[in-house]
Design a protein around this nucleic acid. Structure first.
Lengths: 219, 219
DNA sequence: TCATTTCTGTTGTAAAAACAACCGAATTGT
DNA sequence: ACAATTCGGTTGTTTTTACAACAGAAATGA
């Protein structure tokens, strides 16, 4: 476990917690470490889970198979990222996805009930971890709501306007830089890249905005 | 405050907490009650918020104005619902929406830091409330991810397949009932109702599924 | 530096969705 | 029971998107 301390320190959940405190917390929380080889499942569709997990090494794919067997990759988890936090609630249904190791991977399991219950004075940082965890989920929640706001627009143009407006607000300026290239933006908004590129240029020609690479300016 | 105890008992955050305990917790948490008349803002775009709120009476609209001033209604909050929980994180940016009273409304504000910090022995239910809050956000998170999964599909048919597959899994049967009528399902998936109705019938004609009202069966 | 790859914009075509309008059946309320 | 409303399905038209293919510019790398 010791060798993973540096990566644990960088996770959102242990932000601001010292090496020693992390070690004592891990035992206090009854953390379990498990390794997986390529293709092995960390979580399976249908499972009820009670642990939050952090990926320490390797990478995982979140996969989903529909009723007729078509598989799609919903996302990728890289080292340092937390997952499973959305499934640990009492009344949460079972996992609807598989989580599969893409390569040799190491995962740490943390029982969410033990995190949320107060503990002996031995781990003074417990409260901080609870706050970290809460803020991490809260933050994720916020991002999801925003993305949903863009995606619920009907046309590519409306999606772009929604996304770019939000970026302008967030960066508090009509000029701003986005963290995506065209293909990534198209994937994020779930539209076709060329259609989106086309629409952006039309909007530019209509005088709605200017752009160069990933720098934009709303007019 | 006393008259709102029944509604507070029904909220997710105070689930399982007795009347007396709610009263003592509210003071322990420094809860503040505020009323709004129609049209008044509970939260304004740009604000940084530190409180989770619960609507006790009335109803609120979540509104958003884009860069060019077009307003859209993102959602409605009814009595008993919690909101703001996605914006309370340290590094969370400012609110990007307005929250406006649709009618005379009463709102209670709870400082999230005080909820997450442990307190004196006076409120024994504190740990339960933290867990409730955590599970509520976790649950919301899960629903958002699922909805995003459907909405990221390109065609109406794919969205339907994604949604219906999930329902079948969740209810563990190829036959199941959905909680929406056609218009609501269309709104949920952000597609046109008639186009969706059309697509459903095509899928039925192709032998993919059967349905009657909101009862479906996948084949 | 030169070859290769990635990125972005452009175009045309086929497919799909949005929209509007309408109808009959079911439901609701009085 | 009857009127009014809601609901679901259908059709045709217009708009928008997806898809495929291509080209020039920029970035990358050997």
């Amino acid at each position: 476990m010791q060798k993973y301390i540096p990566i644990l320190k960088k996770t959102k959940i242990f932000a601001g917690v010292s090496d020693d405190e992390i070690v004592s917390m891990l035992s206090c929380l009854g953390a379990r470490l498990k390794t997986y080889e390529k293709g092995e499942c960390v979580f399976r569709q249908g499972e009820h889970i009670t642990d939050i997990t952090v990926l320490l090494e390797g990478s995982l794919h979140i996969q989903k198979d529909d009723y007729w067997g078509n598989r799609s990759i919903l996302g990728e988890i890289s080292a340092g990222e937390m997952f499973g936090e959305a499934y640990v609630a009492y009344d949460s249904g079972p996992m609807l996805n598989d989580v599969v190791a893409k390569e040799h991977s190491a995962v740490i399991f943390l029982d969410v009930k033990r995190i949320l219950s107060s503990c002996s004075s031995a781990c003074r940082f417990h409260a901080l971890v609870v706050q970290n965890l809460f803020f991490a989920i809260s933050e994720k929640n916020r991002k999801l709501v925003q993305k949903l706001g863009h995606m619920s627009k009907r046309t590519t143009r409306e999606k772009l306007i929604s996304y770019l407006s939000e970026q302008a607000k967030k960066q508090n300026s009509a000029s701003f830089t986005i963290p995506f290239n065209r293909q990534q933006l198209a994937d994020f908004l779930a539209v076709d890249r060329s259609a989106m590129s086309n629409e952006l240029c039309k909007m530019r020609d209509e005088g709605l905005l200017e752009f160069e690479k990933n720098k934009f300016r709303l007019l």
